[in-house]
Design a protein around this nucleic acid. Sequence first.
DNA 1: GTGCGATGTATCGCCGCGATACATCGCGAC
DNA 2: GTCGCGATGTATCGCGGCGATACATCGCAC
Lengths: 214, 214
Amino acid sequence: MLELAVLGLLQEAPLHGYELRQRLKATLGTFRAFSYGSLYPTLRRMQAAGWITHDDGDATVVADAPPLTGRRGKVVYKLTAEGKERLAELLSEAGPSAWEDETFGVHFAFFGQTDPEVRVRILEGRRSRLEERREGVRTSLARTRSRLDRYTLQLQEHGLESVDREVRWLTELIETERRSARARPADPVPPGQAGTRPPSDVPPPPTATGRGAP
Amino acid sequence: MLELAVLGLLQEAPLHGYELRQRLKATLGTFRAFSYGSLYPTLRRMQAAGWITHDDGDATVVADAPPLTGRRGKVVYKLTAEGKERLAELLSEAGPSAWEDETFGVHFAFFGQTDPEVRVRILEGRRSRLEERREGVRTSLARTRSRLDRYTLQLQEHGLESVDREVRWLTELIETERRSARARPADPVPPGQAGTRPPSDVPPPPTATGRGAP
DNA sequence: GTGCGATGTATCGCCGCGATACATCGCGAC
DNA sequence: GTCGCGATGTATCGCGGCGATACATCGCAC
């Protein structure tokens, strides 16, 4: 989760912890926090796994600075070759691990680096996931509606409408993806491995954000 | 968090673990899971704290059943007097602890047992919280819009619209609360302590759910 | 020249989640 | 009539994220 986010961000440019967190907030802030309390341990884990290296800048340069004060240099992280492989692997995943509530946002944020085929499959997966849930809530709501507290009901209905909204959003996105896939054929994974391609040239931006009737 | 949810549910009726979880899903399912992995430890903690007791039903009744098979009776939990006090205390809180993302839903779900004054303050607190966040995202979006990836942008905008939607929802709810407060005066906390009252008679249900233009 | 807010690295304890294990019960298929 | 299966029921474990917190440096304003 955080792992994917970090790999995705470092793919674009080497960063140090603080900056990483800023980007995290800027990119995913609407729905996810990612405090240092998870970031640093994750970085440690990833380094141990060999996905990233820390090219720790100062420290060596200012080697004659008072070592007792614990002179701390910025620790700049960047991807290793294995890290890039790992990223490609994560980005090519199109299963539940990509469309569950907690993960979907992160995967979506890096759609720019994701294979078009995978994009569609993830979007569809999430949509049917949400549709399932919606049906569940709807029926359980129909059964218990009368017995329910006024506020509980209101909460339920607000949640239901949120889900509805996201389903509509996803449907729009899927259609857009389909359209640009049709406009750009000769893409159905000709060479060996899929998902490893970084380009992901943005398709003709179709004016985005269906500004229609909300 | 879970603590409040459990207290709130047990206030309505004694329940055992499994049932408790069902209710939890039914009441908050749209936005919160609450697996057994948190439920049982919480129940344990709450019992240790003295908020609840388990009137474990069977086990004693069928005392002659083979004890080696570990005959397990349903464990029915119910509130103690201290538990009721604790619940009242939690329900009377109208600070950030009541309107943050994770907590708001639970507090709202038990608005039926909450003092009308507190209800309004929580709703307003949440609303300004969301408005703050919205402003933050909006400006940061305005600054970086051009540099942003197509998908990141889309994600951001969808998030922003979600926040907008919730703000509108809250505004509606606040107005409704205000209206029923005006219709039912002589309520501004006449006796000693506030928030301790369980009645919370539902105000004249104003046909709910603004079925207007969505 | 001093204080304060942004930058920067890091840890700690808490809490919730998903997976899993295991036992019982009621019911329909065969 | 029994066999299995899905619902009911209690419980644990490890993982990962969160908020609070600590502490150090830097640049700038007053």
